[in-house]
Write a protein that binds this DNA or RNA. Structure first.
Length: 853
RNA sequence: GCCCCCGUGGCGGAACUGGUAUACGCGCCAGGCUUAGGACCUGGUGGGAGCAAUCCCUUAGAGGUUCGAGUCCUCUCGGGGGCACCA
C-alpha cells in the first residue's frame, strides 16, 4: 500500500498546528527553559537551499523532543534581510530592494512552513524592519558614545573596472566578485569598531562555553595572540645625530644580538616624518607608491622575492650590541601587525634571511644550530625550542627558553624594551559605501557653536568627536536616540558613485541634514552598516520582539538567556560568531543585557556540514547541481525530505546529495504507515512476546543520538525497530498498543506529519484546538532498563585473539560456567589442546579469549 | 609554511570508554506478484580457497603497544577545510 498524497496530509497538520499554541514559547513559565537558535536565513531570490533544512530540521528534532520532555522551548526564526544580492538585483532591474526582500521573505516563509518546522512564528521579524534596525542603530550609538566606534583612513578594496569600493566579502581571490577584475587598495575614511579591545576576553571566555574544538581553534587562530616584547631602537641621522627611535614587536627578543638591520612597512609613519632627511627620498617614495598600487594578491604572493629600499641618511642602533644598523622599507612587513616595523634577524627568520641574501646584509647567528656544525647557513635556523645562545655576551650558553625572559628583563631594566602581547585581530571595518543597510546615525556639523561646545567639553578626539571633511573641521554629532530609527531614504540609483561614495551621497536631501545639537545645517553620514550589524544581536530581540522602549525587556532577557544551543555553519566561525560574541559582551558591559545573563551569549555551539551536490562537488548554480527543496517536497513530501537529510550522513560533516538514496527513506516511511494500517486490521492476532527489548533499545539509542546530533544513526535505529515490527508480523504477531505508540513517539520529531496522522489513526483525538490529543502533547518515551535486558547473549569465543566460535548464554553467566561451556565447543577443542590454556580473558556477556602463548 | 578534520564494501556510511568489522540505507543478484513494468514484495550480497564443516585475507601503507587494534602511539602516502610574508 502506498501513502496517498503526503502533501495533502502535511498541509492539514501544518494548518492545525498553526491554529494552536504548541510551538509558542511562554515567557516566565515555571518549567525549565530551553533557548534553541539556528542562524536566520538571508532571504535570497533563489529561495531555500537544501542546506537550510539540514540545520533547521536537526534543531527542530531537538526542540520537539524537549517539548515532549516538559520543557518550555523558545525556537525562533527571522530574516537577515539587508545585503548585497538584493542591492545588486536592484542595480540590474531598478526594483527597490524592499520590494524584492518582501517577496523573498514571503517565499521563504512558505518554504519553511512546508517543512513542518516548529518555529514560534509569533516572534519572527526581519532585520530590515525599521522597528528592528532602530535598535541596531541604537547599539551603534552606544558603541560610539563609549569610544568604541571611530573613523579612520583605511584602505578599502577598489575595483578598477566597476569603479566602486568592494566589501571584503565581495573580493574573491583578490578579484572583484562581480566582474572578475583586479582589486586594488584605496584609502578612505571608514567607521571601525574596536573589537581589539575585547581580544583577550574573547579568548579567555572560550573556556566558559561548549564549542566544537575546531570552532574554538579557529577563533583562537583568528584572534592570534602572540607574546613577545616591544623593543625600542634609537635612530641616528647620518650615523651621528640622535633622532627619535623606532619601536618594534618581536616574539624572539632572545635573538636581539643577531638583529643586523631593521625594516618598516611602506605605510609606516617614519617615512613621512623623516622625509626631509632621506637622501634617496625619490627612490623611497617610488617604492612606497608601487607597493600601494599593488593588489593584495601580488603583495601577499609568498613566492615573490623580497624587495626593499634602504632609508639613506637614517639608521638605528641595536640596543644590545650598540652597533649601527641600516633601516629598510620593504613590503614584506605589514603595517597592520605589531608596530609595522621589525628588527630583522636573518640568521633565525627565513624572510629576513632571504632579504639579507638579496641585499648582502650581515647574517649573525645567535642561536647555535646543533646540526649545523658552524657551516655557512643556507636557510634561517628557526630554533623556537632547542638551541643554545651564542654571540650574545653575558647570555651565551643559555637555552632559548631561558634567554627569552632574561633578555627581556635586561632590556626592560635598561629602558629599551618591555614584555608585550600582540593580536592578529584587527578592528572591524563597520561602514559600507552601499545602500541596502542600516544608515549610520550621525551627522557632521561645522557650526561654531558645536565646535566651541566640543572644545569646551574636552571631548575632541580626532576620528571620534572631530573629523576633517573637505579640509574643514566638523563636529561629529550623533542623532538623538528618540529620533531613531533613521530610515533609509528612497534613491533612484543604487550604484555606488564613481568616487566610491555610497549611493546615499548622491541624494542631496539626505546629505543635507539639520544638526540635532545646534539646529544648523549639517552633513549626514552616507555610509551604511555591514550586513553583520543586524545579526549581531538578533537573538536578544527574539525574547521580546515587539518592545518599542528597549531593545528587549531585561526580565525577559534574564529568563531566556543565554542561548542554550546555537547551531550554524562553520563559515561564520570568525565572522558572525565572533562579532556577535563581541557585541553581546559590550551590551552586557553597559547593562543593556542584565548581569545575570552572563558574559557569553551562546552556551553551546554546534556546526552542521554542508550538503554537497551529487558526486561531492559544492552545490552551485553554475555547476547546475542545485537541488530545490520544493521539488523534493512535491515529489515525496516534507517528512521524506526531513528524514532523508538526517540520514544522509554524519550531521557535522559534509555529505553529497544522492537522489537514489531518498527512495530508501520513502520506503521506510511508507512501510511504517502500512504497518499501522495492517495493525488496525489485525486486532485478533496475538501480541509478539519479545518486542520490548527491540523497542527499548530504540528508545535509548534514539534519545542519546538526538542529544549528540547523531541523527543518521537515530534514523537507522528507527529503521531497525521498524524491521523488528515487520519480523513479528511475518510470524502473525502484532505489537501491543503501547509499543506501537512508543514507536510513533520516537518517530514524531523526525517525521512529524506522518506521526501525527498515524497517532490519530490509532484512535487519538489528534491535534484539536487545545492540542491535548496531539502526539506532540505526549511525553517522550522513558527508557526502561529492565525491559531492555536481553535474556540471552551471544558470547564470542576466541583462541589467541582469533574468533573461533560463538556461544549463546543466559545474560550474566559467570566466568566459570562460561569457560566450561566454551571448552566443549568442537571448534574450540580443535584449536585448543585440552590442558593448554595458560590464561583466560573473560569479558562478561561479550567474550572469552583463551591465550596459550 | 601553520592549524584543524578525514581515509572502512560498488556507493552514503555503522562500530559505546580497545572486545562478533562492514549495522542501516542505496545499488546489484535471485525469486515472487504482474499482460508488462518497477518508486512493489521476499531472500541473498567484503575478497579468496573448499562439495562441505571450515580456513585464510581485509578498515590508505609500514612499524609498535596489547590476550585482543578500524579505535591507542610513531612514521609515510592521499583527500578536504581554514589561516597565511602575523616578525
Amino acid at each position: 500500500m502506498r501513502r496517498v498524497n503526503p502533501q495533502k496530509t502535511e498541509r492539514k497538520w501544518q494548518k492545525r498546528w498553526a491554529a494552536g499554541k504548541l510551538d509558542q514559547a511562554a515567557d516566565f513559565d515555571p518549567r525549565p527553559k530551553f533557548y534553541a537558535l539556528v542562524e536566520f536565513p538571508y532571504p535570497s531570490g533563489e529561495g531555500l537551499h537544501v542546506g537550510h533544512p539540514r540545520s533547521y530540521t536537526a534543531m527542530d528534532i531537538i526542540c520537539r523532543k524537549r517539548r515532549m520532555e516538559g520543557v518550555n522551548v523558545l525556537f525562533p526564526i527571522g530574516f537577515d534581510s539587508f545585503g548585497l544580492p538584493a542591492e545588486n538585483y536592484a542595480i540590474k532591474t531598478k526594483t527597490h530592494p524592499a520590494v524584492t526582500t518582501a517577496a523573498n521573505i514571503k517565499n521563504f516563509m512558505r518554504q519553511l512552513k512546508a517543512l513542518g518546522l516548529s518555529f514560534d512564528w509569533t516572534r519572527a521579524f526581519a532585520t530590515t524592519e525599521p522597528e528592528y534596525y532602530r535598535w541596531t542603530q541604537w547599539i551603534f550609538l552606544q558603541l560610539y558614545r563609549r569610544g568604541l566606534a571611530y573613523r579612520a583612513e583605511i584602505p578599502i578594496n577598489w575595483c578598477e573596472h566597476c569603479t566602486i569600493g568592494l566589501a571584503n566579502e565581495e573580493v574573491v581571490d583578490g578579484r572583484c566578485e562581480r566582474c572578475g577584475g583586479p582589486v586594488s587598495k584605496r584609502t578612505k575614511a571608514q567607521w571601525l569598531l574596536r573589537i581589539t579591545v575585547y581580544a583577550q576576553r574573547l579568548i579567555d571566555d572560550l573556556q566558559l562555553v561548549d564549542y566544537p574544538e575546531r570552532v574554538r581553534q579557529s577563533q583562537l587562530n583568528w584572534i592570534g595572540r602572540s607574546e613577545g616584547a616591544e623593543i625600542t631602537f634609537p635612530m641616528r641621522v647620518n650615523g651621528a645625530t640622535p633622532s627619535g627611535a623606532l619601536t618594534v614587536f618581536t616574539t624572539r627578543p632572545d635573538t636581539i644580538f643577531g638583529a643586523t638591520f631593521m625594516v618598516v612597512a611602506p605605510e609606516h609613519g617614519l617615512i613621512s616624518q623623516h622625509a626631509a632627511l632621506l637622501k634617496n627620498l625619490d627612490e623611497v617614495q617610488r617604492y612606497v607608491q608601487a607597493a600601494r598600487s599593488k593588489s593584495d594578491l601580488e603583495r601577499t604572493d609568498l613566492a615573490k622575492s623580497k624587495t626593499g629600499v634602504c632609508l639613506d641618511g637614517l639608521s638605528a642602533v641595536n640596543p644590545a650590541t650598540g652597533k649601527e644598523i641600516p633601516i629598510y622599507v620593504a613590503d614584506y612587513v605589514l603595517s597592520s601587525y605589531g608596530t609595522g616595523a621589525i628588527m630583522a634577524v636573518p640568521a633565525h627568520d627565513q624572510r629576513d634571511f632571504e632579504f639579507a641574501r638579496a641585499y648582502r646584509l650581515p647574517i649573525v647567528p645567535v642561536v647555535a644550530n646543533p646540526a649545523g656544525n658552524g657551516a655557512p647557513l643556507t636557510a634561517a635556523y628557526v630554533a623556537t625550542q632547542g638551541g643554545t645562545i651564542i654571540n650574545s655576551t653575558q647570555f651565551n650558553g643559555l637555552s632559548v627558553t631561558e634567554a627569552v625572559p632574561k633578555i627581556t628583563a635586561w632590556l626592560e631594566y635598561r629602558g629599551v624594551g618591555k614584555r608585550a602581547i600582540t593580536y592578529k585581530l584587527r578592528d572591524w571595518v563597520f561602514s559600507r559605501q552601499r545602500y541596502w543597510g542600516e544608515p549610520i546615525p550621525l551627522v557632521y556639523c561645522h557650526s561654531d557653536e558645536c565646535r566651541n561646545r566640543r572644545l569646551a567639553s574636552g571631548e575632541n578626539t580626532p576620528g571620534v568627536h572631530m573629523v576633517v571633511l573637505d579640509g574643514r573641521e566638523h563636529t561629529v554629532v550623533p542623532i538623538s536616540e528618540d529620533q531613531l530609527p533613521l530610515e533609509l531614504p528612497k534613491v533612484k540609483r543604487y550604484e555606488p558613485t564613481a568616487n566610491g561614495e555610497s549611493p546615499l551621497a548622491a541624494v542631496g536631501k539626505w546629505v543635507a541634514a539639520t544638526c540635532p545639537q545646534c539646529g544648523g545645517p549639517a552633513r549626514r553620514e552616507t555610509d551604511v552598516m555591514p550586513n553583520w550589524a543586524g545579526s549581531n544581536w538578533y537573538f536578544l530581540r527574539y525574547t521580546d520582539p515587539e518592545n518599542g522602549e528597549l531593545l528587549a525587556d531585561p526580565a525577559k532577557l534574564r529568563y531566556w538567556l543565554p542561548v542554550d544551543w546555537y547551531n550554524g555553519g562553520m563559515e561564520h566561525t570568525t565572522l558572525h560568531l565572533l562579532y556577535s560574541r563581541f557585541i553581546y559582551k559590550f551590551l552586557w558591559d553597559i547593562g543593556a543585557v542584565p548581569p545575570e545573563c552572563g558574559p557569553e551569549p551562546y552556551k553551546k555551539r554546534t556546526s552542521h556540514g554542508l550538503i554537497l551536490g551529487e558526486g561531492g562537488e559544492k552545490m552551485s548554480k553554475s555547476r547546475g547541481n542545485v537541488v530545490n527543496p520544493d521539488a523534493v517536497i512535491a515529489e515525496y513530501g516534507a517528512d521524506v525530505l526531513r528524514v532523508y537529510e538526517m540520514f544522509i550522513g554524519p550531521f557535522d560533516q559534509p555529505s553529497p546529495w544522492d537522489t537514489k538514496g531518498i527512495i530508501g527513506v520513502k520506503r521506510f516511511l511508507d512501510g511504517v504507515a502500512e504497518y499501522v494500517a495492517w495493525w488496525m486490521s489485525a486486532a485478533k492476532l496475538p501480541e509478539a512476546p519479545d518486542l520490548d527489548q527491540a523497542l527499548q533499545t530504540a528508545v535509548l539509542k534514539i534519545s542519546e543520538d538526538i542529544e549528540a546530533m547523531r541523527f543518521n544513526t537515530a534514523v537507522a535505529a528507527l529503521m531497525i525497530a521498524r524491521n523488528a515490527l515487520s519480523a513479528a508480523r511475518q510470524q502473525a504477531q502484532r505489537a501491543s498498543l503501547s509499543q506501537l505508540e512508543a514507536y510513533l513517539l520516537l518517530l514524531s520529531p523526525f517525521a512529524p506529519h506522518l506521526a501525527e496522522e498515524l497517532w490519530e489513526t490509532l484512535g487519538h483525538k489528534g491535534c484539536d484546538r487545545a492540542h491535548r490529543g496531539s502526539i506532540f502533547a505526549q511525553s517522550w518515551p522513558r527508557y526502561e532498563a529492565a525491559k531492555a535486558q536481553a535474556a540471552a547473549v551471544t558470547v564470542v569465543v576466541q583462541v589467541n585473539g582469533r574468533v573461533r566460535d560463538r556461544l549463546v548464554l543466559p545474560a550474566g553467566t559467570g566466568e566459570t560456567e562460561a569457560v566450561v561451556q566454551a571448552r566443549q565447543l568442537p571448534n574450540i577443542q580443535r584449536h585448543l589442546a585440552p590442558a593448554a590454556a595458560v590464561r583466560v580473558v573473560f569479558v562478561p556477556d561479550r567474550l572469552i579469549n583463551f591465550v596459550t602463548s
